[in-house]
């Protein structure tokens, strides 16, 4: 990985940029990027109700790289999905940049997911019919709509190419996911997560399906993004090895945060 392409500098968002769907007056400066209070979630079937989160509290400061760890079933992925507005909470509150977002209308939740969050999943979740470049462009296609996309396309393509270059995949742009290795697919997914210049990156076991070398490459990229761009990252992982590169380790057990450990600055 040499000659990294510089992303446009991240600017401190003003009130309207941060949350245009909310009132300007409600915004506060120096608030945590994410703040979770008493979060509860249970999965229900027709007969059973399985509680997963019992009242989680968590704050994520701007520019932090946090790893969420815990045993299987501890609720770490569920917490990540709830913060990412992929699912609906049963109780508590989620605040993003000072504003409550868990109770927003579906359309606003969709818009936050598209514009403010970036997602990286364990199983990459790339669309198999699209090339690497098209997969990276997908969030912008969704965000712009058909007409907007028509006008934004050329600019978006050059941005996507730059990102693919940055993750070392400039030679794989026209390849379909099935033609890529696991590491390449995850790096494509990372480029996709970055295309909208997210203010929070949510990574759900990004190295869980990769070999050590590919996993390290992904983590190195995340660390670089965090340090150089100030990107706030919340990462779920099983791998305690990679948590060394993060600022803070939050441990979950049985649906509760049981321990928080701030890492010494590297």
């Amino acid at each position: 990985m040499s000659d990294l392409v510089e992303l446009p500098p991240r600017q401190t968002p003003n009130a309207v940029e941060v949350a245009p769907w909310l009132g300007k007056a409600q915004l506060l400066q120096s608030t945590p990027v994410v703040s979770v209070h008493g979060l509860k979630k249970a999965y229900r079937t027709h007969i059973h109700s399985v509680p997963v989160l019992h009242g989680v509290n968590l704050e994520v400061e701007k520019g932090e790289f946090i790893s969420l760890v815990g045993q299987s079933g501890s609720g770490k992925s569920t917490l990540l999905h709830l913060i990412g507005l992929l699912d609906v909470i049963d109780g508590g509150e989620i605040h993003f940049e000072g504003q409550r977002i868990d109770n927003l209308a579906t359309s606003n939740r969709d818009r936050i997911r598209n514009e403010a969050f970036g997602f990286v999943f364990q199983f990459y979740h790339l669309l198999p019919e699209l090339t690497a470049l098209e997969n990276v462009l997908l969030p912008l296609m969704i965000g712009n709509g058909p007409l907007g996309w028509f006008f934004a396309r050329s600019k978006a393509v050059s941005l996507a190419k730059g990102l693919l270059d940055r993750v070392g995949l400039s030679h794989r742009m026209d390849h379909k996911p099935r033609e890529l290795s696991g590491g390449e697919m995850q790096r494509t997914a990372l480029a996709r997560a970055l295309i909208t210049k997210p203010r929070l990156l949510l990574a759900d076991e990004p190295t869980g399906n990769l070999d050590d070398e590919s996993g390290s490459e992904v983590i190195r990229l995340l660390r670089t993004l965090n340090r150089e761009e100030g990107l706030t990252i919340l990462m779920v992982t099983h791998n305690l090895e990679i948590t060394r590169d993060t600022d803070r380790i939050v441990r979950l057990s049985k649906g509760l945060v049981v321990n928080e450990e701030v890492q010494p600055a590297a």
């Binding site: 969709d110 997911r113 997908l138 969704i142």
Partner: peptide, 16 residues
């Protein structure tokens, strides 16, 4: 279903 999930995770609206 999974692809629809991906689109929704990336911010696709119901109407979209």
């Amino acid at each position: 279903t999974k692809d629809i999930g991906i689109l929704k995770a990336l911010g696709a609206s119901r109407f979209g």
